[in-house]
């Protein structure tokens, strides 16, 4: 079967798998961002809590993904949610927390003290300083965290097919089971392409969000 024939035969299921994959990654990223970004900002001024939090998050990330699924299924089975998109989403949120929290933390800490002083001297309240000075200056760093988290989640979602979460990983799973390389490559290429597109889009967002005064000077 040629590549074109394969694509014609499976166009429907590929699109469905792509949609499932995107939904899985999207929901997990949204939840992780809602937790991780505020968390990173909150701990930026608290050295000790920051150390402990980042240590814990990086320990979670060290756990191999299929092992995390294996640990979580029995736990989530207690609330009858052991299989399917739910445990996959929980695992992906846990993995995505580290880059989101760490990048927000670093980005806020690297806001130049002079900018904060100037804002304070102009009579801004703490809230205004955060929203109008610190956050805009930290935005590119925070988006870089989102980019890393997105790339990772797209890969983890591939393995989630094994616990019944669907997505493009399903093509890889079926390809392995039937030793049909075309199927495996379709899944792998789809995921790699998706990761690439998301990476490009978020890289562009990262540059676009850089405040006007900071353009031109590259951030390392």
């Amino acid at each position: 079967m040629s590549v074109m024939e394969f694509l014609r035969e499976y166009d429907q299921s590929l699109l469905i798998a792509l949609y499932e994959h995107l939904r899985l990654v999207g929901i997990a990223l949204l939840i992780a961002a809602m937790i991780g970004i505020p968390l990173g900002i909150r701990i930026a001024r608290r050295e000790r809590i920051a150390g402990a939090t980042l240590f814990l998050l990086s320990a979670i990330q060290t756990i191999p993904n299929i092992a995390l699924f294996g640990l979580m299924i029995p736990i989530l089975a207690m609330i009858n949610r052991g299989i399917g998109p739910f445990p996959a989403t929980v695992a992906m949120v846990l993995y995505a927390l580290l880059p989101l929290t760490r990048n927000s933390y670093v980005a806020i800490r690297e806001v130049p003290a002079s900018a904060l002083d100037a804002a304070r001297g102009m009579g801004m309240t703490e809230r205004q300083i955060l929203l109008r000075v610190a956050l805009p200056l930290a935005a590119p760093g925070i988006i870089a965290g989102v980019r890393i988290a997105a790339g990772m989640s797209i890969g983890v979602a591939a393995i989630a097919a094994y616990i019944g979460a669907g997505g493009l990983g399903l093509f890889i799973v079926r390809g392995i089971q039937t030793t049909w390389n075309m199927m495996t490559i379709a899944g792998a290429a789809g995921i790699a392409l998706l990761a690439l597109v998301v990476e490009l889009l978020l890289g562009w967002a990262e540059r676009a969000l850089r405040p006007r005064g900071m353009r031109g000077e590259e951030i390392r």
């Binding site: 320990a59 191999p64 092992a67 995390l68 699924f69 294996g70 299924i73 029995p74 089975a77």
Partner: peptide, 22 residues
């Protein structure tokens, strides 16, 4: 463990794998 839905097998693999990585 996943194929047979046997939580004890999942844990028997997952715990040592996680510990090895950590």
């Amino acid at each position: 463990g996943i194929a047979l839905y046997k939580p004890e097998a999942m844990l028997a693999g997952a715990i040592p794998t996680a510990m090895l990585a950590l």
